[in-house]
Design a protein around this nucleic acid. Structure first.
Length: 481
RNA sequence: GGCCCCAUGGUCAAGUGGUCAAGACAUCGCCCUUUCACGGCGGUAACCCGAGUUCGAACCUCGGUGGGGUCACCA
């Protein structure tokens, strides 16, 4: 009984893809996949002013790294193209004129000056339908005379236009609150909303998924479908993602776009997973999900009607979960560029560093700062040796550092196990608790109050030679105290 | 301002007439421990307000308040 589901994502190529936009695309994708339908990419580039070079490629790239693949688009013909709006311009005039014949639209010759005089006290102007009832003869004559014109929608009077939104339920608007809007501009170009209706219909879109900014104007679009005698699509409007309680997330805030988060060290799948959760909750309340799992679980009933605030702290956490779930090799692979770019890049065993970082960072870009100390060794505050719980003070530290130097200086095998065994044995022989030695040794090796890893791990990363150099340096400092 | 929509902890949210109102992030405390993390355990913290309907409302109705959206020859 049902036609194949067809959804579309129709971004304007104006630069980076922001999070709210991506989420809309993601939901349209998930809905199509869940229902065995098709997901179509259409580029809405009718606004030449806002066009940005290379932005279409950016859309492709973003979708690809986000793991959202489309069945039809500018580069994947599905037979209902072109899929770039600027290539469809000739269509719109044809359909606008057809709509005039059908009685759903009319020619309007009003000048901009006349229109400006229609503004009310709030600065909003509502067209007064001045040209709505011009006679056919008059229209023909003025057209023949070459007068500039636009084509306006002929909105029926005194009717209520309503539809059943899949997430918001019934939405009703009186046609008297709907203006006779312009469909075809005087330059022959369609307005966005007209192009949208024509394209969606021609492309066989069955479910229109978009932001709530269209919630109350949808009845107006429906009236166009009706006038054409076309079947109306189903609608799914999505609540906005906010920056805070009163401001919508927007491009203007700069860092709310996908590419920036990727550059900041977020994993694409973590970003996608997180934004899927903003405004949608799966039945079982799961949070960490693969694209396949989201597809499986996706359901309109879980989409919320209220806006949500973007919380980077939670996205960081989720990203950390993805990082921790990786194998050591996988993590090494994604972290290597960040280690290489740090000031210690190339100086130490990077696989070892990666291993230390895996449970200690939420996003990859934290790595450089976290390991900078490896390169930063010199005079430090001896006060950090004093540790109540560890039962360490300066005298214990002196002893401990000596013990650790003796323990490792003749070691042939340099790995976690051998060092640990040697130091523990030496501590025991000296009658000290291994914690006392380990703690002191860690400080002596790094000169830092806290480090990502303990004494043994630090020694492994530093290597034997450097470890001994540092321990001896610390021994001298302690001797002077 | 007209019209449309929304309202559960700081944040994301479950909940669809009877719950001690889930869970997650954040936050705080404890445990583990070789510092820091990871991990484990626990705590603080919410139904915007007011009327109804009902034996009984976070859930239904109305009003208020607050917030968002929309009213272009932009998309």
């Amino acid at each position: 009984m049902d036609k194949t589901v067809r959804t579309r994502f129709a971004p304007s190529p104006t630069g980076f893809m922001h999070i709210g936009n991506l989420r809309t695309g993601l939901y349209a994708y998930l809905f199509a996949r869940k229902n065995g339908g098709k997901f179509i990419l259409r580029i809405e580039d009718t606004d030449r002013e806002r066009m940005v070079d290379g932005a279409i490629e950016m859309v492709y790239r973003t979708l690809a790294t986000a793991g959202i693949d489309y069945d039809e688009g500018p580069d994947r013909d599905g037979g209902v193209g072109p899929y770039i709006q600027s290539d469809r311009m000739s269509l719109y005039r044809e359909y606008a004129e057809k709509l005039v014949e059908l009685g759903g639209a009319y020619y309007c010759f009003c000048t901009k000056e006349r229109l400006e005089g229609l503004q009310d006290e709030n600065g909003t102007h509502t067209y007064d339908k001045h040209c709505r009832n011009l006679s056919k003869e008059e229209v023909a004559a003025r057209l023949a005379a070459g007068e500039p014109y636009v084509i306006r929608q002929k909105v029926p009077e005194h009717v209520v236009s309503s539809y059943e939104d899949m997430v918001f339920g019934e939405i009703s608007v009186s046609s008297d609150d709907i203006e006779d809007g312009i469909l075809l501009k005087s330059d022959g170009m369609p307005t966005y909303n007209f192009a949208n209706v024509v394209d969606d219909h021609l492309m066989g879109i069955t479910h229109v998924i978009r932001g709530t900014e269209y919630l109350s104007s949808t009845p107006k679009y429906n009236l166009i479908y009706d006038a054409f005698g076309w079947e109306r699509p189903r609608y799914m409007h999505l609540p906005p993602i906010m920056k805070d309680a009163t401001r919508k997330l927007s491009k203007r805030f700069g860092d709310a776009n996908f590419e920036d988060f990727v550059a900041k060290g977020y994993l694409p799948q973590a970003i996608v997973n997180y934004i899927a959760l903003l405004g949608w909750c799966p039945k079982d309340n799961r949070e960490k999900m693969t694209m396949e799992e989201m597809t499986e679980e996706f359901d309109v009933s879980g989409i919320s009607t209220s806006s949500s605030i973007f919380d980077e702290a939670k996205m960081r956490w989720l990203n950390g979960e993805y990082l921790k779930a990786m194998t050591e090799e996988e993590f090494y692979k994604v972290s290597a560029p960040y280690i290489a770019a740090s000031k210690v890049g190339g100086k130490y065993d990077e696989a070892e560093i990666a291993r230390l970082m895996q449970t200690r960072v939420d996003i990859l870009s934290e790595i450089p700062d976290k390991i900078a100390f490896l390169d930063d060794f010199g005079e430090y505050d001896l006060g950090m040796y004093v540790h109540q719980k560890m039962k360490v003070d300066l005298n214990v530290a002196k002893q401990a550092v000596k013990v650790s130097i003796d323990a490792i200086k003749d070691l042939d095998v340099w790995n976690e196990e051998s060092i640990k065994d040697a130091v523990k044995a030496a501590a025991e022989a000296a009658g000290m608790k291994s914690g006392q030695v380990m703690f002191s040794m860690r400080v002596a090796l790094t000169g830092q109050p806290s480090t990502p890893g303990g004494a043994i791990e630090m020694a492994v990363v530093l290597g034997k030679e450097e470890s001994l150099r540092r321990l001896e340096f610390s021994q001298e400092m302690l001797a002077r105290a």
